[in-house]
Each structure stands twice: as structure tokens, then as C-alpha cells.
């Protein structure tokens, strides 16, 4: 089983900054972490490999600094990692990012399973996983919370949705995006973390993956950010209720009724 796991480095919560000119996120400076959902994808990929044998390759696109995210993946048991990094990739939207990642997966070759986090917590779009599957023209399942069976030709998974869940079977190669509840990601052992830091992480450029220069980067991205603005401020002041529980409950319920909320 050859598994590719896509990893994104994201700003730590509350640490996102925007470039006023390009309106895109500034990925330099500031604290960066592995996208939380991707940790579950990494863990699941490694667990599958531990059961079935094979290889897990972590893949990311971003500035040189994103190697830190791949190093973390390596410390969790990923066998090798590749970073897509070049100025020409800069400013790629979800379409262009999916395209580049799909090209890289083709270059890796022979990949049976692609795992991604459900979404990245900076953009929150959940578009790159499905985008990769579209470009590779392979089956996909989003919001996977259990892998039921890794078969010889198919993988069977349980997906969650707003009202329940379903069980679906996909033929390889397949792409899965996983939710948080699928596993508990391991804490890397010190020894593995040390080895990961020493590992060589190759950097691939557009020409290395045979990417069409007209399909990557800011200019080729279908979506363009026109403007950014602060969100509308939340309404009025806080209504503070205290006093005894009876009084508080009475005032509160009257307020709910007055505001027609119940």
C-alpha cells in the first residue's frame, strides 16, 4: 500500500495576518502549526501502513518554512516527505493548489490511497481534497471517521454527515478526507523527532512535476480576492444578569420571550 498524505502548514489560531496588497495570508513570520485535521490524516496513514506494510509519503505545498510541518509528519512515522515550493506556486487558490498536489502525486507514482484532513483551519474551504480527486479522476470520500476495511482492491469507510453516517466502498486509487474523531494522533518519540529533523526533504518545483505554468500561482487561480474588511461588529452591549438563580432564570426567560427567541 502506497499512501500519500497531504499536509498544510497553517498559522496558529489567532495568529493569521493578511498581506494588504495581495489580500492573501502571510505565511512568513508568525507561529505556524500543522493543520490540526492533517494530524489525524497522518496518524491514520501511518496506522494503515503499520497494518498492511508499504510506504507513506507526506506532501505539502508552501514556503521553505513549511518543511517544519513535514518534519512533524516524519516524526510521526511517515517514511518520506516532499515539499512543493517555488515562487511560481505562490498565491495559488484551492483550484491551483489541488492541481499542483495532483501533479505531484502523479509524479510520486503508484499511489493507492491519498489522505487529507477534512479541511484546513485557515481557509476552512474543504476544497483541496475533492479538487485533487477531481484532477486525478479518482473516487473520493469526505468526512471519514472510520476506516472499516482496507481490502486488496477497495477501501471501505464510514463517513459522517449532519444526520448520521454511511458506509461506502471505493476502488483504489482513492482519496479520503478525515475528521478529528478517527484516531488520537501519537506524540512522537524523542528519538523519532530527532531522526525526522535530520531527514532530507526534497523540494519540487513546477518543472519537476510537469505542472503547466498557466495553471499554478496567483495569476492562474480562478478566484481572486477583491477586498478584505473587518467583520461587522456584534450588536449591542452585553446584558448582564446575576442575582439568585431564581431571579436570573426569571429575567433570562423573560428576555428570551421579549426577543422572540423562544
Amino acid at each position: 500500500m502506497k499512501i500519500a498524505v497531504c499536509v498544510k502548514q497553517v498559522p496558529a489560531a489567532g495568529d493569521a495576518k493578511i498581506n494588504p496588497e495581495t489580500k492573501r495570508i502571510i505565511r512568513e513570520g508568525g507561529k505556524a502549526v500543522v493543520n490540526p485535521f492533517d494530524l489525524y490524516a497522518i496518524e491514520e496513514a501511518v496506522r494503515i501502513k503499520e497494518r498492511t506494510g508499504g510506504e507513506v509519503i507526506a506532501l505539502s505545498m508552501g514556503p521553505e518554512k513549511a518543511k517544519a510541518a513535514l518534519t512533524e509528519a516524519l516524526s510521526m512515522g511517515v517514511d518520506r516527505a516532499v515539499l512543493l515550493s517555488d515562487r511560481a506556486f505562490g498565491g495559488s487558490d484551492t483550484w491551483a493548489t489541488s492541481y499542483a498536489l495532483a501533479k505531484a502525486i502523479e509524479k510520486i507514482g503508484g499511489v493507492d490511497l491519498i489522505l487529507c484532513g477534512k479541511q484546513a483551519v485557515d481557509g476552512d474551504t474543504a476544497q483541496v481534497g475533492a479538487g485533487i480527486a477531481a484532477k486525478l479522476d479518482i473516487m473520493q470520500a469526505a468526512n471519514v471517521w472510520r476506516i472499516e476495511e482496507i481490502g486488496a482492491d477497495t477501501v471501505t469507510v464510514k463517513r459522517i454527515n449532519e444526520r448520521g453516517w454511511d458506509v461506502v466502498r471505493l476502488a483504489y486509487p482513492a482519496l479520503l478526507t478525515v475528521v478529528k474523531d478517527i484516531n488520537i494522533p501519537r506524540i512522537p518519540k524523542l528519538r523519532d523527532a530527532r531522526a525526522a529533523r535530520r531527514a532530507e526533504i526534497p523540494v519540487w518545483k513546477p518543472e519537476d512535476i510537469g505542472a503547466d505554468p498557466d495553471k499554478i500561482g496567483l495569476k492562474s487561480s480562478p478566484t481572486q480576492v477583491v477586498k478584505t474588511a473587518p467583520p461587522a461588529a456584534r450588536g449591542a452591549e452585553t446584558l448582564k444578569i446575576d442575582g439568585s438563580s431564581e431571579e436570573a432564570a426569571n429575567v433570562f426567560v423573560s428576555e428570551l420571550i421579549r426577543r422572540k427567541l423562544v
Binding site: 484551492t94 483550484w95 474543504a126 483541496v128 475533492a130 477531481a134 484532477k135 454527515n161 449532519e162 480562478p222
Partner: peptide
Amino acid sequence: ATSRGRALIPRLAGKLYCGLTAD
């Protein structure tokens, strides 16, 4: 932007080569 839409529509955008803005 339901669990179905958030899986289906980006696949469609990926196939058609067009822009998609979520949520």
C-alpha cells in the same frame, strides 16, 4: 455548504476549471 455540498461542489469546480468560494 452542507457535508454533501462541500464534497460535491469542489469536485465539480475541479473538473470544470472554475473558481469556487466556500461558505
